[in-house]
């Protein structure tokens, strides 16, 4: 009836394209990234490499009073109550993988192990990440002197994403209990955005946020800009809440990412943790480097205790690495 060759050729081309793409996804990943920080004759240098075209961002930060963070814990216990996180297990997996992609090897701890961490792990240089909306009763009962609060105030860093920080306690039976006047344990009434009003911040805060590609504008559950010793690297609303807020808490730090867990807030959490930005960190160096298949080098400033965060792809980032000087 009709010539078959052209149609068969179309089918063959389509299947070939599909199979090449499939092989690249599952069997031979053509993309590879790498970076390094090292001493050379000219001083401290970095190198970045990519198998293809990549735009790297090299940020050297003085992490301020909190210092560089070296130990990372992510809390998740399927038996304990959570709130505002429908697919808790999947979300935790995605977060931990995303952190790993961006140079952070985090350990998942359940409620009992979390208790061990706050009792036995040195707070300085450590952080605990929560996305469960509630802290387990093993470390938090909603009263002054709770282990997690003491641990943070002693120099630890607590990263929070989800329902209002401190408002909920996760019980062992899977339920969640609300804490009365939870704000008294933090910075006073209104310190975190507990209302549904004005959930969007539309003005960029500290420019460091744009450098690390912070993107979520949700200030729901976010930290108030009036919290003392705080920095807001995300978006800030006209009602005075930030989408990514970092604040001094005793000798430690609280970081609150506004909104519920989704792709945007996860990315903001990962970039904030990986870059080691803190409430009083200062930018030492911020460079953009383009690589077209190969390696490129550059110079860093020598600064003991500084953290170098190198990532590529901007808002769509497939790679990150961090180095403590």
């Amino acid at each position: 009836m009709v010539r078959r060759d052209a149609a068969v050729a179309i089918l063959v081309v389509m299947v070939a394209v599909m199979v090449v793409g499939e092989v690249a996804v599952y069997y031979v990943n053509p993309y590879s990234y790498g970076s390094n920080v090292y001493e050379s004759e000219g001083g401290l240098e970095y190198s970045v490499e990519s198998s293809g075209a990549s735009e790297f961002r090299v940020i050297e930060l003085d992490p301020g009073s909190v210092g560089p963070i070296e130990r990372f814990y992510v809390y998740f216990d399927p038996d304990y109550g959570t709130i505002g996180l429908p697919d808790a297990e999947g979300s935790i997996d995605a977060l931990v993988l995303d952190l790993e992609i961006h140079g952070v090897d985090a350990t998942i701890v359940d409620a009992a192990a979390l208790r061990d961490v706050v009792e036995n792990v040195e707070p300085c240089g450590s952080c605990i990440i929560f996305i469960t909306g509630a802290m387990p009763s093993t470390v938090y009962e909603g009263v002054s002197g709770d282990p997690i609060l003491n641990w943070t105030a002693s120099g630890g860093a607590l990263y929070w994403l989800g329902e209002t920080l401190g408002k909920y306690v996760g019980n062992q039976d899977g339920s969640v209990r609300e804490v009365d006047e939870w704000w008294t344990l933090f910075y006073g009434e209104g310190c975190f955005n507990d209302s549904d009003d004005s959930v969007i911040g539309d003005v960029r805060g500290d420019p460091l946020g744009e450098s690390i590609c912070v993107r979520s504008s949700s200030v729901q559950f976010g930290m108030s800009t009036s919290v003392p010793d705080s920095k807001h690297i995300g978006y800030v609303s006209d009602t005075g809440y930030g989408s990514v807020g970092l604040a001094k808490y005793g000798s430690g730090m609280l970081c609150v990412i506004g909104g519920y867990f989704d792709d945007d807030t996860r990315s903001d959490l990962v970039q904030t943790v990986s870059s080691n930005v803190t409430y009083d960190s200062a930018v030492i160096l911020d460079q953009v480097v383009n690589v077209r298949g190969g390696t490129t080098t550059g110079s860093l400033e020598e600064s003991a205790g500084a953290v170098v965060y190198i990532f590529c792809g901007g808002y769509f980032s497939p790679y990150g690495a961090r180095y403590i000087l």
């Binding site: 690249a24 993988l97 992609i101 497939p318």
Partner: peptide
């Protein structure tokens, strides 16, 4: 594409 570049395949990361 970013997820693939990261080696996370199609489904390991949301998107």
């Amino acid at each position: 594409i970013a997820n693939m570049q990261a080696g996370a395949g199609l489904f390991e990361l949301p998107g």
